[in-house]
Computed example of a mutant assay.
Amino acid sequence: MKSVRFGIFGMAVILICSTLSGCWSSSPVEDLNLETGIAMDVAEPSPQEEQIKQKGGDYPRKEVITGTFQFIIPEESGGSDRSSSQKKKFFNITETGDSVFEIIREIALRTNRPPIGYHLKTVIISSSLLRKIPIYELLNFFLSDNDIRPSVQLLISTDKAGDALQESIPGQIPAYVLKDVFVSRKRNSRLAKPMALAKVIGPMRAKSSFILPNVITGEKGIKLAGAGVIKGKTQTYGGFLNESEVEGLMWMRGELSGGTLKAIDPKTRKNIVYEIKKAKSSIKATVQGGDISFRVRMTSEGRLSESFSLNEDLGSNRLLGKQESILQEKVNSLAEQTVAKMHALRADVGGFGEALRIQHPQVWRRVKADWDNTFSTIPVQVSTDIHIEDYGASKIRAE
């Protein structure tokens, strides 16, 4: 009986192991073009496309979108190479047309490896293109394709979007760099919160205004700076928030992960630099008769990282209270600057409509149809409470 049980057990082990041998439909990564980044600009066919067109390599289309597609170059197997970190790890292909899906399929005719979107990390859209085409039309393919993950990061560019996918750091893939820069939100309060593909579905369906982080390109580098505003009703580009306005917006929305706040002491004209450890915000909507108003209360705890006043005692409660007041006025100023810009652009990207919807649902139902225009006339008051809980380990005094 033991031998029979042992034989049955052995057969079971063999059958289980056979099912773990691999996937019958798998394809070696070396045989695929893995997309890492896609940039979309106003149509501007490349010289190579023009040559192909002149030789009969054309198909019925309108020249509306120029897509720049970034693909990984698979690493060669074998021994180590000291210079491998300096080798280019990607290549770009551009194609022009009027359908993102058709453009991708057209690329398949120019390479022996089919494009695959499993590893797509970043999609960049130029503000110029978004002035002409609503964002929901440009993203329709990405939201429908099962190969593309909803965690793909969306960016906007006031420059040419395709330039952001050019090499800026030797040995690194630009699409990955753009995605990973958001780790620095713990260190910089002027960086907008990342916007994943899945997170734009709600604002698009609700026809609410929202922002996308903006990338600018230099001769040999990139920088995430400011944000582009997508207007609620039209879902097209509506304007730009600079870095200070984004900083004010992050304070009002309570979306700071860290970073610094710099203010100038009006008496000494010296810098005060505050490191943000915690930050919160609340929006209170008030309705009196037919009038609506908002009050934003921001709070924060952190440490004094730099103070250029050598002869003052940083442990003094009086001095800390004075510096806290200066920092609070700075935050209020940033927030007021951002509110003024939102009013000018007629776009609520600060979450004020959501606060009104939750706190006064009946009023919201009355004004939501034309909320962005209504918001542009509504007063917003801001207040800040900052607590310096740490001012460093040493004190320096001038003799």
Rank of each mutant, 00 (worst) to 15 (best):
K2A: 10
V13K: 06
G22Q: 11
S25N: 11
S27T: 13
D31Y: 01
N33H: 12
N33T: 10
V42N: 06
S46M: 06
G56V: 08
D58P: 05
D58I: 12
R61W: 03
G67N: 08
T68L: 01
F69G: 03
I72K: 00
I73M: 03
S77Y: 02
R82N: 14
R82G: 13
S84N: 08
K88T: 05
K88L: 08
I93W: 10
E95K: 05
T96W: 13
D98I: 02
V100F: 12
E102C: 00
I103Q: 12
I107P: 13
T111P: 12
H119Q: 15
L120P: 13
K121I: 05
T122S: 14
S128I: 01
L130H: 01
N140G: 04
S144Q: 09
N146A: 09
Q153W: 02
L154Q: 13
L155A: 08
I156G: 05
S157Q: 05
T158N: 13
A161D: 06
A161K: 00
G162V: 03
L165I: 03
L165D: 08
S168C: 06
S168R: 02
Q172P: 10
I173A: 02
P174A: 01
L178T: 04
K179E: 14
K179F: 13
V181A: 06
V181C: 04
S184V: 01
K186A: 08
R187P: 07
L191W: 07
P194R: 11
A196M: 15
L197V: 10
L197R: 15
A206Q: 06
S208H: 10
S208M: 08
P213L: 05
P213Y: 00
I216M: 06
K220V: 04
K220S: 11
L224C: 00
G228E: 02
G228C: 14
K231Q: 04
K231W: 03
T234K: 13
Q235F: 02
E245C: 03
M250R: 14
R253I: 10
G258K: 10
G258W: 09
K262Q: 12
N271V: 07
I272L: 15
Y274F: 14
E275K: 07
K280D: 14
K280E: 13
I283V: 13
T286Y: 02
T286R: 04
D291Q: 05
I292N: 00
V296R: 00
R297F: 08
T299R: 01
G302W: 07
S305V: 07
S307E: 06
S307N: 15
L310D: 13
N311P: 15
D313F: 11
D313T: 07
G315S: 14
G315T: 10
G321V: 00
E324T: 01
S325F: 03
K330M: 07
N332C: 14
V339S: 04
V339L: 09
A340T: 11
K341V: 03
K341N: 06
A344M: 06
L345P: 12
L345E: 11
A347I: 03
G351M: 06
E354I: 11
R357F: 09
R357S: 05
I358N: 04
Q359P: 02
H360D: 08
V363K: 15
R366N: 11
V367K: 09
T374Q: 12
T374R: 14
I386F: 03
D390W: 09
Y391P: 07
K395N: 11
I396V: 13
A398H: 12
